[in-house]
Design a protein around this nucleic acid. Structure first.
Lengths: 204, 204
DNA sequence: TCATTCACTAAGCGAGCGCTCACTTACAAT
DNA sequence: ATTGTAAGTGAGCGCTCGCTTAGTGAATGA
């Protein structure tokens, strides 16, 4: 049996109506941007009356925050799980880029909201997701620094290199579409090769 | 004598008041996004009454279009001028990335509007800048394809590689700030090295 | 001198925004 | 049967939005 997309994206959000609203929010925010979508857009995309949104979320911004926080937590745990199951810096970067890029392609709608609408968040909520973003960047930077220290990578500045690696992944969500020439998985593999060369990996 | 920033950015826009409105628009759009900035924001940032905008531009969207079109034309001519004065694919990519990245860092405010607010344009105006964007991408792709053909580059797919190169440059405008650790010029040089390695350049 | 033009403003219109409120319905517990 | 609660609706409030209109003052030219 098939699961609804909203249940796949947010397995532990209850009830199902709240998930439907989040899905409708994601699609609207991704297509037109947060400020250009109205609460009426979201509600009607979820098949409900405008007031229904406020049964499950205290504000339009709170809906964005729920989407953004969940998305950032997913990418952080994706990154952390790679580091947890691999120790070699080369393999860590390879898998990390593969998964990161594939996620930003497969989930490009969610990713677009996560990456490009966070400035619409109120200060307090923004700070919470900013903290998650800093942790993601830190993990990548540390892997590169470690590989640089042991000599498997050759980079001028690990800080700049980490930025570049993340840029490649993040930007995928900007241009990727369902009619793209490559599957998310294939794109992730191709990008991980580009990144490993970029980091000056010694070929073995 | 020093030139105003608006005159530096848009030398052939007349009169000066129109330039001041474009500058105010750029700053507002970059900080809060197109849909979140009001015509009152723009006018007061330019030190004028709200109605003054409509003396020089028929609509808020027309102001965005003027900014966006000008910005895209600048980046296209930047890219084309590199190709015009160099023939070696390696040097072409090196200078192209240096200039492209440096521009997105030095002009990160304009670049942010150019790269991330274009979806707010009406259909017709969007199509015009989309055409410019396709030409930019095409130039980069052709340089990579040519280098790949003559064997100085080793890439799986020039299409994907071109996307990656542009992603690195575009994304700079998202995170770069005036308090960044590197000057635009230095960042451009560092990025061009990363890119050349990414493209599998044979070192000479 | 006075009509014309231009850049600009003060005031405000109609539309649509986020959000609220009084209310209904479905259903579970007693 | 009665009561309590959660989920949802229809109507609409107060406000702000993009944009317009009528008018002002300074410069220009015959």
């Amino acid at each position: 049996m098939t699961m609804s997309l909203s249940a796949e994206l947010w397995p532990d959000v209850q009830p199902e109506t709240a998930r439907r609203l989040m899905l409708a929010g994601v699609e609207s925010f991704a297509r037109r941007g947060y400020h250009a979508t109205t609460t009426r857009d979201i509600a009607s995309a979820a098949g409900m009356s405008p007031a229904a949104l406020y049964v499950h979320f205290p504000s339009k911004a709170a809906l964005l925050f729920a989407i953004s926080k969940y998305g950032h937590e997913q990418t952080l745990s994706l990154v952390e799980s790679v580091v947890a199951r691999e120790t070699d810096p080369v393999e860590r970067i390879r898998l990390l880029v593969e998964d990161f890029v594939a996620w930003h392609a497969r989930r490009h709608t969610v990713a677009r909201v996560v990456q490009y609408e966070l400035h619409a968040l109120p200060d307090e909520e923004f700070e919470i997701v900013a903290k998650l973003r800093r942790r993601i960047e830190q993990v990548v930077r540390e892997v590169i620094t470690e590989g640089s220290r042991t000599g498997v990578f050759t980079v001028g500045d690990p800080h700049t290199a980490a930025r570049a690696v993340l840029s490649l992944g993040v930007d995928v969500s900007r241009w990727y579409s369902d009619r793209a020439r490559q599957t998310p998985k294939k794109l992730g593999q191709e990008y991980s090769e580009l990144v490993l060369r970029m980091l000056g990996t010694k070929l073995s």
